[in-house]
């Protein structure tokens, strides 16, 4: 069970990157996971359709906090289609035994052990869903 809570996951949760709120964001979305009460807020600023600044506030489990931390760490320069593509890849990694995303998003490989725990998939995916929704609110 503790393989869900490896050092890198705990590190991201304990010292989350880009934690907090943005002043005057272009888009902001708060999402709840109704199963457990995870709550994530993603704020974004855009430049030419791509994320130029991003921050998150996660009142959530370790997995969700770590996912939000990695998302915000890697999302600068990403547009909606990029994030949707990453979301699809990590969803497939968790649900269909697909390969981990490549490039800078390979950091998401720390969530591979979550694949065996279906009830926790949503914890990892929630920040991505919130970020994509935030991008859509700007569109």
């Amino acid at each position: 069970m503790t393989n869900l809570y490896q050092k890198d996951v705990l590190h991201h949760a304990a010292a989350a990157h880009r934690a907090g709120r943005l002043d005057d964001p272009d888009g902001s979305v708060m999402l709840d996971n109704p199963l457990c009460g995870d709550r994530v807020t993603i704020d974004i600023k855009l430049s030419d359709g791509a994320i130029s600044d991003i921050a998150h506030e996660a009142k959530a489990c370790v997995l969700c906090q770590a996912s939000a931390s990695i998302l915000c760490d890697k999302a600068i320069g990403a547009d909606a289609s990029t994030l949707e593509n990453v979301q699809s890849q990590i969803s497939a990694m968790l649900k269909q035994d697909a390969p981990v995303p490549q490039g800078k998003w390979e950091a998401l490989s720390i969530f591979l052990p979550v694949a065996d725990h279906k009830s926790r998939h949503a914890c990892v995916l929630l920040p991505f869903e919130a970020a994509i929704n935030a991008l859509r609110t700007v569109d």
Partner: peptide, 11 residues
């Protein structure tokens, strides 16, 4: 978070 506590105690 309660889910982390429950997950680890399930172990």
């Amino acid at each position: 978070h309660p889910h982390d506590i429950c997950q680890l105690l399930d172990g």
